[in-house]
Amino acid sequence: MNAAHIMTTGVITLQKEKTVKDAMKILIEKRIRQMPVVDNDNRIIGVLKARKLIQSVLPRYVADGLLKDVKFAPDLPKLHEKARELAGKNISDVMDKDFVKISPDAAVFEIAAIFVNAEKSVENIYVVDDKDRILGIISPWDMFKKIWDLNEK
């Protein structure tokens, strides 16, 4: 059992020249939660993640963790203004370059370990060929459902 067996194919990707506004339109229409960003040769170069977008509308001293808990503060109007600034930005400026990619032959055991032990919490794992082109995507649920199925059988 390996990555190729459990991945979801037909992943919607985004060209790196697109703006945040374009990306948000697709995200909302297609009801997807994160989107890989590809270059002109269709190679994955980053992932557009909600957490990263939220980070970029927050003031840096909060995003950097200097001020972690702001329960004592009133709302900050600046957040909406920052979101407006963000709309015209290039996807490649706001994408997260930190993502996990894996070959289609990777074993389920290996993938399961990545979900639990990776440095940062991994939302999805991208399955790529030897030229970094996306073949599919594996979510933690895909992973666990597969293990569950095996148990049921």
């Binding site: 003031p59 001293y61 909060v62 200097l66 001020l67 702001v70 503060a73 009133p74 900050l76 600046k78």
Partner: peptide, 14 residues
């Protein structure tokens, strides 16, 4: 200053 500076920027931004 690590305590004061972030809070100060927040006050000013508000």
């Amino acid at each position: 200053v690590l305590l004061m500076a972030p809070l100060t920027i927040l006050f000013a931004e508000e």
